[in-house]
Simulated assay, not measured.
Amino acid sequence: MNAVVVDVVERRSLRRPGHGAPPDAVMPAEGEAWPFVGREVGDGVSLGTTPSRYMIEIVPVPDSAILTPARGVRSDAAEPLAPAAALAADPPPERRRPSHAGWLVDVHETA
């Protein structure tokens, strides 16, 4: 059993009205956060999202797929979320990183 990993190039660009944001969107002033959209669920807890300041384009790198040995298929194979502190900083405009693409599994049938 193998995990399939492919390199991707992640490009970020500032979201602007008409360029990834609705044409009538209002950009927050420089240095201000995007508005939080959510609701209170009680006990000081709220659920919601804050729109990203960036549009993210993820492009697979041709001929970069590799197989890595795996002991089993996990449902938690999603890439970890970046810590909140990392989200506050301005990300690089482009970076290359590995991305989990799937599993290659051998099936042995027995009677």
Rank of each mutant, 00 (worst) to 15 (best):
M1T: 06
M1S: 11
N2D: 14
N2W: 10
N2H: 12
N2R: 06
A3G: 15
V5S: 01
V6H: 04
V8P: 03
V9G: 01
R12D: 07
S13P: 02
L14S: 10
R15T: 11
R15A: 15
R15Y: 05
G18T: 03
G18F: 01
A21F: 03
P22N: 06
D24T: 01
A25R: 04
V26D: 04
M27H: 03
A29K: 06
E30W: 08
E30Q: 13
G31P: 01
E32N: 06
P35M: 00
R39M: 13
R39S: 08
E40H: 08
G44L: 02
G44H: 03
S46A: 13
G48T: 03
T49L: 13
T49G: 12
R53H: 09
R53W: 03
M55E: 14
M55L: 15
I56C: 12
V59C: 05
P62H: 00
P62F: 05
D63K: 08
D63S: 09
D63I: 02
D63G: 08
S64W: 03
A65V: 01
I66W: 02
I66C: 08
L67D: 06
P69R: 04
P69H: 06
R74P: 02
S75R: 11
S75Y: 12
S75K: 10
S75G: 14
D76K: 00
D76T: 06
D76Q: 05
A77S: 12
A77W: 10
P80Y: 11
L81D: 13
L81E: 14
A82M: 11
A85K: 13
A85V: 10
L87M: 09
A89E: 14
D90L: 15
R95C: 08
R97Q: 12
R97V: 06
H100V: 07
H100A: 13
H100T: 02
G102T: 02
G102L: 04
G102A: 00
G102F: 00
D106E: 15
D106K: 11
V107G: 06
H108Q: 15
A111M: 13
